[in-house]
Amino acid sequence: MTTRHADRCAAFRALHRAGRPLLLPNAWDHASAAAFAARGFPAVGTTSLGVAAAAGLPDGAGATRAETLRLARRLCRLPVLLTVDVEGGFSDEPAAVAALAVELAGLGVVGINLEDGRSDGSLAPAAATAAAVAAVKAVTPDLFVNARTDAWWLGVPDPLDQALDRVRAYRAAGADGVFAPGVPDAATIGVLAAAVDAPLNVLHRPGGPDVAELARLGVARISTGSLPFRAALGAALATVDALRAGSADAGPYPEPPSYADVQRLVP
Rank of each mutant, 00 (worst) to 15 (best):
R8I: 04
L203T: 10
V80M: 02
V262E: 05
L200K: 00
R65Q: 14
L154N: 04
S258E: 15
G117W: 14
A98K: 03
R148V: 08
D7K: 02
S91Y: 03
P25G: 02
S223Y: 11
Q263V: 15
A95K: 02
L24F: 03
L265I: 08
V139S: 02
E255K: 09
Y253S: 07
A95V: 02
A235M: 13
A260C: 10
L82E: 00
A193S: 01
P256N: 07
Y253H: 05
A66H: 10
L265A: 08
F41N: 07
P25W: 04
R39W: 06
A232V: 12
A175D: 07
D142C: 08
A128W: 00
A260V: 11
A43I: 01
G246N: 01
R74Q: 15
H204D: 11
A260M: 09
V133H: 04
V51N: 01
D197N: 08
A6M: 02
E103R: 11
S122L: 13
F229D: 05
G251V: 00
V84P: 03
A66S: 12
D185S: 15
V136A: 01
L15V: 04
T3E: 13
R230L: 14
A173Q: 07
Q162G: 08
A212C: 05
P267T: 05
A131W: 01
P209W: 00
L107E: 06
D116E: 11
Y253I: 00
D29E: 10
P252A: 13
R216F: 10
V178A: 05
M1D: 11
T83H: 02
P125S: 09
R8A: 15
A169P: 12
T2M: 06
A193M: 05
D197M: 04
L57F: 00
L69G: 04
L71D: 14
E255N: 09
A220V: 03
R205V: 14
D92F: 12
V136F: 00
G88Y: 13
H204G: 09
L192E: 08
A61Q: 10
A72C: 01
E255G: 12
D176N: 11
M1W: 11
A130L: 01
G50M: 02
L22H: 07
I112T: 07
L75S: 05
G56S: 09
H30W: 15
L71K: 12
E93D: 14
V219T: 10
A172E: 14
H30D: 14
R77Y: 15
N201C: 10
T46H: 01
E103V: 02
D210P: 14
S247H: 13
T188V: 11
H16N: 05
L160Y: 10
V145C: 08
N26I: 06
L164R: 03
A186L: 15
A186K: 13
L100R: 00
G88W: 14
A14E: 09
